[in-house]
Simulated scan of single mutants.
Amino acid sequence: MTTPNNTPIKNRIGAVFIPVRNLEKAIEWYRKIVGLEGGEEHFGHLFVAPMEGTAGLILDAMPKWRKEDGDIATYQVPSIQLVTDDLQASYQFMKEHHVELVTEIQDDFYFVFKDLDGNVLMICKNT
């Protein structure tokens, strides 16, 4: 089936992949910080967690995309936006959990932080 623009590709994000170095540590961190519940491991390097708003968040150890030294590239700009109803409480929560904050709250709308692997992510007010 094709869309009105005659393309078979849907105008929808199915999931978001986040590169991680250690899958088990990343699962634990994301469960604590983002409140992930459930989820399943696949193929020894993927963890698929259900999320509201997308089909899921996938933590991926990405064995096929590693550099020669075994390391993996991380997101260096905030390419993933998580939402909150209470920006101040979310910022304080991150501080209390010793999450590396890249910015303070900006424009009373968002702040940027790094995950366990150094990926740069953003939290914004739910509008």
Rank of each mutant, 00 (worst) to 15 (best):
V99C: 11
G14M: 08
E37H: 12
F43R: 11
T54H: 00
V16Y: 01
P19W: 03
M1I: 06
G44K: 10
H42K: 15
F93I: 07
T103I: 09
D60A: 08
H97N: 15
H45M: 04
T7V: 07
H97E: 04
R21I: 02
D107N: 13
G39D: 02
N126M: 13
L46I: 12
N6P: 04
L46Y: 05
R66N: 09
W29P: 05
T103R: 02
P78L: 12
N119T: 06
D107A: 11
T74P: 01
V77W: 14
D86K: 15
T74M: 12
F47W: 02
E24I: 10
S90D: 13
E41T: 15
L57Y: 01
A73M: 12
T54C: 01
K67F: 15
R31I: 07
L87R: 03
N119C: 09
L59V: 01
P19A: 13
T3A: 12
N6Y: 06
I13H: 04
G39Y: 02
S90R: 03
E28G: 09
G14K: 05
V112T: 12
Q76V: 10
D108R: 06
I13G: 05
A73K: 05
E96L: 11
L57H: 01
G70L: 07
R21L: 11
K95S: 06
Q81V: 14
I58F: 07
N22K: 13
T127R: 11
R31V: 02
E52Y: 03
M51D: 00
L101V: 06
R12S: 09
V77G: 11
E100P: 00
L23R: 11
H98W: 01
V102E: 06
P4R: 02
L46H: 05
Q88R: 13
F113K: 04
L23D: 10
P50N: 05
K10F: 12
T74S: 08
K32E: 15
T84M: 09
R12E: 13
E41D: 03
E104W: 00
E104A: 15
I27R: 03
F47V: 04
F111Q: 07
K32G: 06
I9F: 11
D71I: 02
Q88K: 15
A49W: 01
N22F: 03
P78M: 12
K95R: 12
K25D: 15
E28K: 14
Q81A: 14
P19M: 06
Q106G: 04
Y30P: 05
I13W: 09
F111L: 07
V83A: 02
H97W: 04
D115L: 08
F47D: 03
A15C: 13
M94T: 03
M122N: 10
A89C: 09
Q92G: 00
A89K: 12
M122K: 07
K32C: 07
L59H: 04
T2V: 15
D115Y: 07
R12H: 13
V120I: 13
A26L: 09
W29K: 08
I27A: 05
G118F: 12
F43H: 13
I9K: 02
M94I: 01
V83P: 00
L87S: 06
G39V: 04
R66T: 08
F17C: 03
L101F: 08
E68N: 14
H98Q: 14
K32L: 10
R31G: 04
N11Y: 12
A61S: 10
N11K: 11
F43G: 04
I72H: 00
D85P: 08
G70E: 07
A15V: 08
